Computed example of a mutant assay.
Amino acid sequence: MMLMVGAMFVFGTQDALSRYLAETYSVLGVLLIRYWFFAGFVMVRAVRAPGGIRQVVRSKRPFLQSLRGVMLVLQVWMMVKSFTLIGLVEAHAIFACYPLLIAALAGPVLGERVSLRRWLAIGAGAVGVLLILRPGAGLFAPASLLVLLAALNFAAYGLLTRVVGLHDAPETSFFYTGIAGAVAITLPGPWIWTPIAMHDWFWMGLLCLSGSMGHYLLIRALAVSEASRLQPLAYFQLIFAAAAGVIVFGEHLAPMTMAGAALVVGAGLFNLRASR
């Protein structure tokens, strides 16, 4: 549990660093450096894995594995871009609905049975998202749709992860996540690169290290405990990111946003319990 909470703290810090850098530099340029570092981290893990890199790179679903990597880098871009448009608090409050989207899509995509209780939880989460968006109050930001699209994309990524998990080892999935994402973000490299000032390279280095550290803690947590027991702790990322938004960037915690986020998180936890 401590490893999982630590991973969420690192990811929340990573989001704050991403927002700071993305407000000054190209979002894709920031992700380019971040993914190069991530790809190096993945390569080191692959070399040290049992059987070496040749064993890790073998996949029975290489196309789906590569598609996952591209989808994830696209989702990260959408989220980082939304941080600069609507802030960490709003973005994470909306994005917290992605477990409910996974539950809703699990039926038609994977053929899983979704009970009435789980559908009620999904509906409650949708109400929570509407509270955050407040579309009829004149406060709706079109950028919020970017977060919803990111959540839907991440839900699809999660479902694909389940599919490839039936055929490939976790190390193989992790390898393709980093390498395919790095290749996808490198292709437009000459057009998205922006020079980074010397004093910001410290924050860029910290961003790269935090990404690798967060994944390492998450892997260690999943190695010693069941994913279903750790999933509720993933909502700590919302808490840590929101705290960074308020303390570092001076964002406002609107009562309706807090109420909507609480409803979304509560619905997610209820859905997790109902799915056991």
Rank of each mutant, 00 (worst) to 15 (best):
V114M: 04
F11A: 07
A124M: 15
F11S: 07
V73S: 06
L230Y: 06
L101Y: 08
A261Q: 04
F83M: 02
L116T: 06
V73F: 07
V183D: 03
Y20H: 14
A243E: 09
V109L: 15
P170S: 11
R34V: 03
R45D: 02
H252S: 12
V164N: 05
V42E: 00
V89I: 08
A96I: 00
S275Y: 08
Q75L: 09
P142K: 09
A121Y: 06
F175C: 04
P62R: 12
V163D: 00
V89L: 08
E90G: 00
M258P: 02
S115W: 03
W193T: 12
C97W: 05
A39I: 06
L21R: 10
L230A: 12
S228N: 11
A223E: 10
C97I: 15
R19M: 13
V73E: 05
L21M: 15
L207H: 09
A121M: 07
P232Q: 11
S82K: 01
G128E: 11
S66R: 01
G128M: 06
Y216N: 03
E251A: 03
A267N: 09
Y157S: 00
L145R: 03
V47C: 13
M198V: 14
A16I: 08
G205R: 10
L133T: 10
L85A: 13
V42S: 10
V264F: 11
R61Q: 14
S82N: 01
R276Y: 03
F140Q: 08
I102D: 10
A150M: 06
A241W: 06
G266M: 10
G189R: 09
V129S: 11
V73R: 07
T161V: 01
Y98H: 11
M43Y: 02
N271V: 06
A223V: 00
W193G: 05
T161P: 04
V42A: 13
S26C: 07
S212V: 14
Y235V: 03
R48F: 06
M2P: 00
G268L: 15
W77V: 12
I94F: 02
N271S: 15
I239F: 11
A137C: 07
F95K: 04
I86E: 05
A169E: 12
R276M: 08
A46P: 02
A223Q: 10
M256K: 00
M1W: 07
G211V: 02
T13S: 14
E23G: 15
G107E: 10
F240G: 04
G266R: 09
A121S: 15
I196G: 09
L74I: 11
G211N: 08
P99K: 08
I185C: 06
D168V: 13
I179D: 04
P142I: 09
T194A: 14
L72R: 07
R118Q: 08
L67R: 05
P195K: 12
L131C: 06
G245D: 07
S82C: 10
I33A: 15
L218N: 10
V56G: 00
V183Q: 02
E251C: 01
K60V: 01
V73A: 09
D15H: 13
P50E: 11
L67F: 14
T13G: 15
Y216M: 10
L28E: 12
P188A: 13
Y98V: 04
V248W: 15
L67V: 08
A93W: 08
G125T: 11
P232S: 11
V76Y: 12
V129T: 13
A184I: 05
L64K: 03
I247N: 07
Y176G: 03
I122K: 05
T84I: 10
V265N: 06
Y216P: 00
V47P: 00
T177P: 00
